[in-house]
Design a protein around this nucleic acid. Structure first.
Lengths: 204, 204
DNA sequence: GTCTATACGATGATAGAC
DNA sequence: GTCTATCATCGTATAGAC
């Protein structure tokens, strides 16, 4: 039953939002009365925290398992992007909640979840920084570019439809290409891109 | 006073979210009692709709004004991305609300706002499609790539800090480069990118 | 245009029976 | 572990005085 409550809450928080969802609705979705929920969870916020915390833990573990198989920097970032997109689409509801309902957490829980998120982001930032050092990626502002890469893929969780035209793997491949292309030095033919990045944003 | 209520609501909806904000809080922020708000707005949802609708109208008008100055396809998409990012960072609170609080609208208002959003997205999709036809951009799935471009830049409104390290224009330039690079055909040297896009996602 | 006063429902949460 | 019953609070919104 604890798992049922968890799953129903995930579904409702995803569809209606955390604040717009009531304990009565969750209970109704489980076929019990709302008082019974308090036997399994301390309260509504505890339920939200349980969802977000397990999601962030799983996300971090998933990324680490994706990276163990890769060696060179470009391959590692490609794997990281693919894994990021796959996780966000396959566990769409939880990841959408995790990235949009932070304001519903108590300060202590907020700290815990954002700490996990920061650790996750750091891995991407290290990969990008390393690739720039090797010349695999064009020089640029690591923080901004990492946000670009991450939010780009995270946003997939807000428009993705499982029954839609493309599979998760197809979308992951498109994003992988887009991101790696975006980070690589611009071609000699056009040449405007990398110049703009390094002119404007390289550590001033 | 109507404008004051509007601005205070923008600030609170941005910081706490629409459902988590009460009419009393808005009134307190304006220095009046909550009953007085109903003289200016029909209710809380009317306030949300007013914010979202004017924001989407202004966003669309802004894009059109950015495009009148440009001729070739790449230049037009560059200008569109720059304009998109600038608008989302300069009017951060409103655009964040507009992209995250759709669920708070009545069905009729939801329809109006999403219609404006779809019109906006179509302009980007046409630019990308046109560029692919010319060979300026690599062939690929227009819908997915347009979502990638748009959400990428929209997400700026969720992490941007006006007092931060980089100016709006600097961030816009970084994003412009990243997006155009991401869409262009991959270089001969590496060559994996465009192949993956067209293999996987080109109209099957 | 703003106020006081209030209607009226829904909310998260608790107590205690079974 | 689930129930019924209930609490205290807060929500949006309205009526009518000034």
């Amino acid at each position: 039953m604890k798992a049922t409550i968890f799953n129903v809450a995930v579904d409702l928080f995803f569809r209606k939002g955390y604040f717009a969802t009531s304990m009565s609705e969750i209970a109704k979705g489980c076929g019990i009365k709302k008082a019974s929920i308090y036997h399994h969870f301390a309260g509504k916020e505890a339920l939200l925290f349980a969802i977000m915390d397990t999601t962030m833990q799983d996300l971090l573990a998933h990324l680490e398992s994706c990276l163990t198989r890769e060696n060179d920097t470009e391959g590692r970032l490609r794997a990281a992007v693919r894994g990021h997109v796959r996780f966000h689409l396959e566990r769409q509801k939880e990841t959408f909640i995790a990235s949009s309902e932070l304001r519903g957490l108590t300060p202590a829980h907020f700290y815990t979840v954002t700490a996990r998120r920061d650790a996750y982001e750091s891995i991407f930032q290290e990969l990008i920084r390393h690739g720039m050092g090797q010349g695999v990626f064009a020089p640029g502002d690591v923080k901004i570019l990492s946000y670009a890469v991450l939010t780009l893929c995270t946003a997939g969780a807000s428009w993705f439809r499982p029954e839609g035209r493309l599979t998760v793997d197809a979308i992951a491949a498109i994003y992988e290409t887009f991101v790696i292309n975006g980070l690589q030095p611009a071609r000699a033919a056009s040449g405007r891109g990398a110049a703009v990045i390094s002119d404007v944003a390289c550590g001033h």
